[in-house]
């Protein structure tokens, strides 16, 4: 399968073995992000990296795991509850003058956001490349929820991200 190299900047120790072995210079960039246009996907850098910081990403992502309707529905209900709690916690934080309550509520908002993201991922919005995500963007472009909705961003995303499982 055709793939390309990505470097996890958090794990990279800048030991630079990948710089010596890359035949195209794709790993040698001023911002440390491997140059996708130069990378041929040979995988030598990933094999030589002492820190396990390089991952070979498939160019064409396989379709994501299928989710049953029931699983999606029950996870959606929970993410709705988390979204409501995020909103309530932000509101309480905004209004309070107390330091402890402010921090607790901001942490609650953050926690609920993280849980909601995880739930929506498991409900079928795992990959930006999935047809689910793409169909959602298309429907928002066709029927913007309000006149000031940033349609341009949605359009740009459709151009930037190829669909991996569209019929």
């Amino acid at each position: 399968m055709k793939s390309y190299a990505v470097r996890n900047l958090r794990l990279c120790t800048k030991d630079c073995l990948c710089l010596y072995v890359c035949p195209t210079g794709a790993t040698d960039t001023e911002d440390s992000i491997i140059d996708v246009d130069k990378c041929t996907g040979c995988g030598v850098c990933a094999e030589s990296c002492p820190s396990g910081a390089i991952t070979m990403m498939p160019l064409q992502l396989p379709p994501q795991q299928h989710k049953t309707e029931k699983v999606t529905a029950v996870l959606n209900l929970m993410s709705q509850s988390k979204a409501e709690q995020e909103k309530a916690a932000l509101q309480i934080a905004k209004e309070t003058e107390k330091d402890g309550l402010y921090r607790l509520m901001m942490a609650f908002a953050r926690s609920n956001r993280i849980m909601a993201e995880d739930l929506l991922r498991e409900a079928g919005y795992m990959l930006p490349q999935s047809s689910n995500a793409q169909d959602l963007l298309k429907s928002l472009i066709d029927n913007p929820p309000s006149p000031d909705f940033p349609v341009e961003s949605a359009k740009k995303l459709l151009e930037l991200i190829p669909c991996n499982d569209c019929r």
Partner: peptide
Amino acid sequence: AFELSAGQLSALFSNLAR
């Protein structure tokens, strides 16, 4: 259960951003 609210869509898109 299949309708997503604004709060859910916000989390859905921040997740795709991740």
